[in-house]
């Protein structure tokens, strides 16, 4: 493998050829904020929060999609970069509800973290902001399009499983929105509630309904568990508060790890002290079902029963 050497804020770094500037910086322990970048899904380069200054390059390139080259000089916190990041954050906040106090994502939100880091106190621009109804008509996922920053991670991760591909970008420009087919609520779409999208959302636009109001993120203890319902071996986290297990959420949808609803429900039954009742869609409506039905174990249980 061939290597290239570059400087990041004056410090020399050597990385394999083909590495992005973002990864080179991370290698060197230099922080660069990101919203739309996710190493497991196709690159997108849309949020532009990760811009850096590289003398000789036109404009401020996005570090997550720029390849490090030999002799490159990178500045990650130059005045132009800081001005750009602050402005981008102000722009995002100008079109975002000021709702951190009650937001499920409070404490684990990138928008909040970066606003803090770059001391962006308020929106900075007044004007129109989006005003979509909350989508909480299904038992599992709450979508708040007003909090969405259109990073597209949910779309890319959902579309990584071709026969899901339930959501996509819809409309255009300022009206761009993540939509299901015909822009229906998620509950009316073909969504399978695997939660891949929820695991990747950097802000509070997607949240777990079963966990709503169960506790703030810093109050929760986390423990990794592996699902054994199928060979994929997806990893989940069991969340507990005050010694009581309150929820199970997928940790990450790694490569080739599809995640699914059945797996999560099974783990809820296994780990939770007080598992919420499972729901499945029947004739287009959600209905509470037995655990056996939710986990597809009715036949087996019937057989076990017969055997006595």
């Amino acid at each position: 493998m061939s290597y290239v050497s570059l400087t990041i804020n004056g410090v020399m770094v050597t990385v394999p050829k083909g590495t992005t500037v973002l990864n080179a910086a991370r290698e060197a322990g230099v922080f660069i904020p990101t919203f739309c970048h996710d190493p497991n899904i196709p690159r997108f380069g849309a949020c532009r929060i990760c811009v850096v200054e590289i003398p000789g390059m036109r404009n401020l390139p996005a570090s997550c999609v720029t390849e490090a080259t030999e002799g490159m000089e990178v500045y990650t916190e130059s005045p132009a970069v800081v001005e750009a990041r602050k402005t981008i954050l102000e722009l995002l906040l100008a079109n975002h509800p000021q709702d951190c106090l009650t937001c499920e994502k409070n404490g684990d939100c990138r928008l909040q973290d970066y606003a803090f880091r770059y001391s962006v106190k308020e929106a900075g621009f007044k004007g129109e902001s989006k005003d979509y109804p909350l989508d909480d008509t299904n038992p599992y996922i709450i979508r708040d399009a007003n909090k969405c920053i259109l990073c597209g991670r949910c779309v890319r991760t959902c579309n990584a499983i071709p026969d899901r591909s339930v959501i996509d970008f819809g409309y255009r420009g300022f009206n761009t929105k993540i939509v299901t087919a015909m822009d229906t609520p998620l509950g009316e779409s073909d969504c399978v509630y695997c939660g891949r999208c929820v695991t990747v959302c950097p802000v509070g636009a997607l949240a777990w309904k079963p966990l709503a109001g169960k506790g703030r993120t810093w109050e929760m203890a986390r423990q990794d568990v592996t699902c054994t319902f199928c060979d994929s071996g997806c990893v989940f986290e069991v969340l507990s508060k005050d010694g009581k297990n309150v929820g199970v959420i997928p940790k990450a949808s790694g490569n080739g790890r599809p995640l699914c609803l059945k797996g999560r429900l099974g783990l809820e039954l296994k780990y939770l002290d007080d598992p919420p009742p499972p729901y499945l869609k029947k004739d287009g409506e959600f209905a509470q079902v037995s655990w056996a039905e939710a986990l597809g174990l009715e036949d087996i249980l019937a057989k076990l029963d017969n055997k006595g």
Binding site: P162, S165, D168, F169, G170, Y171, V179, T180, A181
Partner: peptide, 20 residues
């Protein structure tokens, strides 16, 4: 929806294209 089925494109994508 029919067009999506016919050419094997997710319906969500067809809707995304039509609204773009």
């Amino acid at each position: 929806k029919k067009i999506s089925r016919e050419i094997g494109v997710p319906f969500s994508k067809t809707f995304g294209v039509a609204t773009f």
